[in-house]
C-alpha cells in the first residue's frame, strides 16, 4: 500500500508545496553541502591533480605533469611496500581484537551476576576520553623494559618481559594493547545491542534445552550482528589509517627498525618532512581507493550475514 501511494505521488507532477519543501530541505543542507564542496570535493580534485605531478611546495614553480610515475613508484618503492606490510600486519591483529574484545567485556558487564555493573562500565569507558597523546606517553613508560610497571610485575611472577615498544617482534602487539584502551565506544554499542535481545527468546531456547553456548551462537550473535558489522568496518578503516599514536611511539623513522613505519606515517613523512607532496598525494589517493573498495565490499556483503530486526 505504502509503495503504491509513493509511486503515485512520484508519477504526479510536483505540487508547489513539494517544490517549496525540496527547496527548504536543500537550503537546510546548504552548510554541509558547502563544506562538502570545499572540504572534500575540491581538495580531493586538487590532490588528484597533484598525484600526477612532482609537486614540491618549496619549488612550486617547477611543478610538472609526470603521468602515472607517482603511482608506479608506490609499487617499486621498497619503503612504501614495507609500510604497507607494517599496516597490514597491524590490521591482522587489531581487527579481530577490536571486534571481539569489546564484546567480551560487554558480555561480562551485562552479566546479571556481576555486582556494581555501572561502575565497571564507567571504568572501562574512562580511558577512551583521554587524549591519544597522553595515553601514548603513559604507555611508553609503563611498558619500558627496565623501569616499566608491566615488566616489574611480570618479573615479580618470574617472567622476563620483552622490550615491548622497542622490540620488532612485540611492537605491533603493544600498539594493539595501547588501542585496547579505547574500547569504550565499541563496548557501549555491544551493551546496548545485548540489552535489546528479547529475554523471551532466551527463555524459549532454554525450554528447548539449549545450553549457554548454543544460546549465544544461535540467538545473541545473529541479533547483534549489525553491531559486529559496524565494528568490523570501523576497525578495518581505522587500521588502514593508523597514524597518530604510532608516530608518537616510533617517530618518523618508525622505531624500532622501521616496524612502526605505518603507511600513513610514510605518507606524512613524504609530504611534510621531505616535501614530496605529489608523491604523498598519490599515496593518499591509493589509500582512498583501497579504503573505498573495502568499505563498499563490506557493505555489499552485509545482506548475507547481517541481521536487522526491523526494516527501518
Amino acid at each position: 500500500m505504502a509503495t503504491l501511494t509513493s509511486r503515485i505521488s512520484k508519477a504526479l507532477p510536483k505540487s508547489r508545496a513539494q517544490k517549496r519543501e525540496a527547496r527548504l530541505g536543500l537550503t537546510m543542507l546548504a552548510p554541509w553541502l558547502v563544506g562538502l564542496l570545499f572540504l572534500w570535493i575540491l581538495p580531493m580534485g586538487i590532490s588528484l591533480y597533484f598525484s600526477f605531478t612532482n609537486y614540491d611546495p618549496v619549488k612550486a614553480d617547477q611543478i610538472k605533469f609526470i603521468g602515472f610515475d607517482n603511482f608506479v613508484r608506490i609499487f617499486t618503492d621498497e619503503v612504501a611496500i614495507w609500510s604497507g606490510f607494517v599496516t597490514f600486519r597491524f590490521m591482522f591483529i587489531y581487527v579481530p581484537f577490536s571486534v571481539i574484545m569489546p564484546l567480551l567485556i560487554a558480555l561480562m558487564i551485562t552479566n546479571k551476576t556481576l555486582p556494581i555493573r555501572g561502575v565497571f562500565r564507567f571504568l572501562f569507558y574512562l580511558p577512551s576520553i583521554i587524549p591519544g597523546i597522553a595515553a601514548t606517553l603513559i604507555f611508553l613508560r609503563v611498558f619500558n623494559v627496565q623501569t616499566g610497571w608491566v615488566n616489574r610485575i611480570l618479573g615479580g611472577i618470574g617472567i622476563e618481559g620483552p622490550s615491548w615498544f622497542w622490540d620488532a617482534n612485540w611492537v605491533t602487539i603493544t600498539l594493539v594493547i595501547l588501542e585496547f584502551w579505547f574500547i569504550g565506544a565499541g563496548m557501549i554499542q555491544y551493551i546496548a545491542a545485548l540489552q535489546n535481545v528479547p529475554l523471551e527468546m532466551y527463555e524459549a531456547a532454554k525450554v528447548d534445552g539449549a545450553g549457554p553456548f548454543r544460546r549465544f551462537f544461535q540467538i545473541t550473535l545473529p541479533l547483534i550482528s549489525s553491531v559486529i558489522f559496524y565494528r568490523l568496518v570501523f576497525a578495518l578503516i581505522f587500521a588502514m589509517q593508523y597514524f597518530g599514536n604510532a608516530m608518537l611511539v616510533g617517530g618518523l623513522s618508525g622505531n624500532p627498525d622501521r616496524n612502526t613505519l605505518f603507511y600513513n606515517v610514510y605518507l606524512y613523512r613524504a609530504g611534510w618532512t621531505l616535501n614530496e607532496m605529489g608523491y604523498a598525494s598519490a599515496l593518499a589517493w591509493f589509500l582512498f581507493i583501497l579504503a573505498g573498495a573495502v568499505t563498499i565490499g563490506l557493505f555489499a556483503s552485509q545482506k548475507k550475514w547481517v541481521f536487522y530486526a526491523t526494516g527501518d
Binding site: L140, R141, N144, V145, Q146, T147, G148, S163, F165, W166, N255, P256
Partner: peptide, 10 residues
Amino acid sequence: PSGEEAGSEL
C-alpha cells in the same frame, strides 16, 4: 645507552 634505555625513567 641504547635508544630504549635512554627513554627509561633512569
